[in-house]
Every structure is written in structure tokens, then in C-alpha cells.
Simulated assay, not measured.
Amino acid sequence: MSLEAMVKAVERWIGTAEPNEIQAWYRQRNGSLYNGNFAWCDATITLAAVEAGEYDAVCFGTDFAYTVAHAARFKAAGQWTAMTNGIKASGIRRGDIVFFDWAGTSEIGKIDHVGIVTGVSADYKYVYTVEGNTLNVCARRVRVVQDIAGFGRPKYKPAPRPATSSGSSGSKRPQVSLKALVQAFKVDAPKKGTPVSYAPTKYVEQALVAEKLLAAQYADGHAGTATRSAYALLQHRYGYSGKDADGMPGKASLTRLGKAHGFDVVA
């Protein structure tokens, strides 16, 4: 498993309201103290860590519902960064477990809430997150530095490497030309049955489907408006904004997507 597995495990619960399976799961493990509609933001992180195979990295082998205790555990392990020097200087990044104090302090004892970082804006003004129990649902949020008390950085397992063949006839990873893909996005042929301008576009669309950003019906090789909209959402997830998140593929974002979903990017 890996950092990406952890992010996807939290994202799986987006849209979940209360009462919910997360609370029921946590109650079953931890007893009647958690009867009723208890605050479940950290229970979401705990469940996701179990599902992602990152329970030891994220939770140190302990279930957490109390955010203060969870942040203190990161600090005890030497894996805590207080948000005292701004978003850019702190180095906060995708996969970090981010803790919030609505009063604007960086004191662990005053922490109110927790989520996981999915990206940071290119201008370092915003941190993108997924959080359980935010306005009573699990949802994506955009946070500013004043909200953030600090973050813990789990020691995630490295991402698994794709299997390769040592023989000369072994299979190769698919390749996607950035130049040809950008041209395909500009052509924009959305109608089914019309010629596909660049066949490897489908690899990108299938990756966007796997990221739950594009409906499977649109992964037909045509770089239509749905595909471009989905790619813009991906760019926002990766922390881009403005012209860097207009839905037109760029080398950095496409390479990152390819690494996660089994294709290589060429010029």
C-alpha cells in the first residue's frame, strides 16, 4: 500500500452523512463510549488507514477519535510540524494528516478537527483536503493557513512498482505523447462514432475514471468536454489553480497520473 492508497481510502467516504458506517465501525471496535452521534473526523482517518494498509504509519497502531491525542502521538514520534511559518515554508503536502484549530493557534491542546491533505495550490494560499464530519458529512474542503494548527507526516510504505518483464518480448507500459494528447484535447471530438484523433487518450481517460473524476461512459478515446473537465478537477486535486488548472494536460500532472495508473509520458 502507499500514500495514494490512503488518500483514495479517505476519498471513498466523500458524501457520507451521519449517522454512518464509519461511526458504527469505530463503535464496534471501541465500545459504548462511542454510542450516539459522536464526532467522527478522526474515526474517518482511522478507518481509512486500516483500509489502506497504513494503520501503523497513520495511527501508530491505535484507533483515534480524539484529535488532540492523535496530533500528540505524531509529535512524540518526531513527525509533527506546527503551522507557524506559512504553508510554503512548512512543506505541507499530499498525504499529510492535517489538524485544525478554529481559533487560529498552533497549539496541539486546542485542536478541533482533522483531515487529509490532497494538494496545495500553486501560490501556496490554500491547502486542499478531504475531511470527515465537516458540516456533518465527509467532503472536500479548501483551507487557509489560519485554520491549520499543524500536520503529521506518516511514514507511508513506498508505492508498489509495476511488474516488468526481463525478456526482449516482454510487455511495455503504454506511452502517451504529451504533444499529441494536448492536440487531441484541442480537437475536442465528443461524439461517439467519430474518429478518435489520438488513441492513447483512452489511457488518460481510464486513469481519470479510476480517480473517480470521469464517468466510465466518457472513457471512449475522445478528448471531449467531460474529459477536459475531469482533468481540471485532477489538476485542482494536485494543487494547481488558475491557468494551471484549465483542464489542458501539462507534463507534471500527466506524469504523476501516469505513474499512478501504469503509463509513461513522452514528448
Rank of each mutant, 00 (worst) to 15 (best):
K8M: 05
G36R: 08
G224S: 04
E51D: 12
M1K: 06
G53H: 00
W102M: 10
D56P: 04
G193T: 12
A122M: 11
A180V: 08
K155M: 08
A163V: 14
K191C: 15
W80N: 04
A245D: 08
E205H: 01
Y55R: 04
L208S: 00
S253D: 13
Y203F: 14
K88L: 13
D147T: 13
H261K: 07
D246C: 11
D112A: 10
A65H: 08
T16G: 07
G109P: 00
E51G: 04
P158S: 09
R143S: 11
D56F: 04
A43L: 02
Y66G: 07
P200A: 01
A57C: 07
S90G: 12
G36P: 06
Q235S: 06
I87P: 02
A17I: 14
R228C: 02
K186G: 03
K251I: 11
A103D: 15
A69P: 07
W80H: 05
V144Q: 14
E107S: 14
A199V: 14
G258S: 07
V114F: 03
L257F: 01
D112I: 10
A72M: 11
R29Q: 15
W40M: 02
G119E: 01
V176C: 03
Y34G: 07
A260N: 09
K110Q: 13
A24L: 13
W13T: 04
H222E: 08
S106K: 09
M6I: 04
G78D: 08
G15Q: 00
A149E: 03
P160Y: 08
A139E: 09
D220F: 07
A24W: 11
V117Q: 01
K212P: 02
A260K: 10
T164W: 09
T67Y: 07
K186R: 14
E11V: 08
S169E: 15
V98H: 06
A245V: 08
A184F: 05
A77M: 12
A210N: 13
K8L: 04
W102G: 10
G91H: 10
Q217Y: 08
D246E: 11
F151V: 05
F185Y: 13
E11G: 04
A184S: 14
Y218D: 02
A76G: 10
H113G: 00
N136G: 09
N35I: 11
G53L: 05
A184W: 02
K155H: 11
A82K: 08
A122W: 09
C59W: 00
S241G: 11
A232V: 05
A232K: 12
G86P: 05
Q28R: 14
A189G: 11
G31K: 09
A149H: 07
S197M: 10
T227K: 04
I111P: 03
S171W: 14
A89T: 12
A52S: 14
Y218N: 00
D63R: 03
Y198L: 01
L181V: 09
L257V: 03
Y156D: 03
S229L: 14
D42K: 05
S32T: 14
V68F: 04
T16E: 12
Y66S: 10
T201K: 01
R12T: 02
G91V: 11
D246M: 11
H236C: 02
A5T: 08
A39Y: 05
G247T: 06
A48R: 01
F60S: 03
D42V: 01
E107K: 15
A24K: 13
V127L: 10
A89K: 15
K172N: 12
Y240F: 14
S197T: 15
L33G: 15
S106H: 12
A180P: 00
D56H: 09
L233I: 12
T44Q: 00
